[in-house]
Amino acid sequence: MIRSRALPIGLLFAATAILQTACEKRPDGKMHFMGEPNPAAKWKPSEDITDFTALYSQNCIACHGAGKTVAASIAMDNQTYLNLVPADILKNIITNGVKGTRMPGFGEAEGGGLTGRQIEILVNGILAWKKPLDTSAGALPAYAGPLGNAANGQALFSQSFEKDRPPAETYLNPAFLGLVSNQYLRTLVIVGIPELGYPDYHGFIPGRSLTDQEVSDVTAWLVTNRKNEFGEPLAAQPTPVPPASLPAVPPAPNTTDAPKLP
């Protein structure tokens, strides 16, 4: 008698246990079979992606990193950079790229495939990472500026960085200088790539922070080291003035919960 009841009950338990392991909890709070297609996985045209984290990790992260991801160019969550860059310039660069450098334009006119709305989401999301910067050690230089005194820049340069950093001379490699814009050099001197040991304006020379004028001087020195492919020095080009005619981006949403870093 007992045996005849134990068998079906045992089977029932086994079946329930098997079905249970085939289930998982989904964001909607309910249990679903693992094989049930997730509405989030439904294909949608790339124009419809409006999630900042998705947009950033599909388009920017490889070169600009953020959070735990390190990349070869300036990180977009670099606090010095976020406090330095004007929002309209950020938007302009994402949309149109920087001609003559490796930064492509992501706007539709450049064939980049992002809509204006998506670029705005990116700009707002990036700027939402911004926190107030501690400038007690030295005021933040201006984003853009004219080239300064190259001789003075050279003098600053010769007080090379601390030991475990890339030697200052590596900045003078003509191929490197030939690949980047004047503005990139200036920005690099100000914000650095701290994750990779490239100092910002506080650590560029030992003991004190660079001033705005000194940043211009160092940039000028770097620019005068540019050579063409035959090793002949090039005349220093003036820093291109960022186009100011672009519509300003609305200020970043003043939320405390900044978008998640990918």
């Binding site: 388009n59 390190v70 070869a72 890339p166 900045y171 191929a175 490197f176």
Partner: peptide, 24 residues
């Protein structure tokens, strides 16, 4: 090209030119 990241040990201790190479 836009989404495949490079782990940190392949970027650390690289010269500015090498970093530009990573971007290329």
């Amino acid at each position: 090209w836009r989404s495949a990241i490079t782990p940190k040990q392949f970027l650390e201790h690289r010269s500015p030119l090498e970093l530009q190479g990573a971007i290329v």
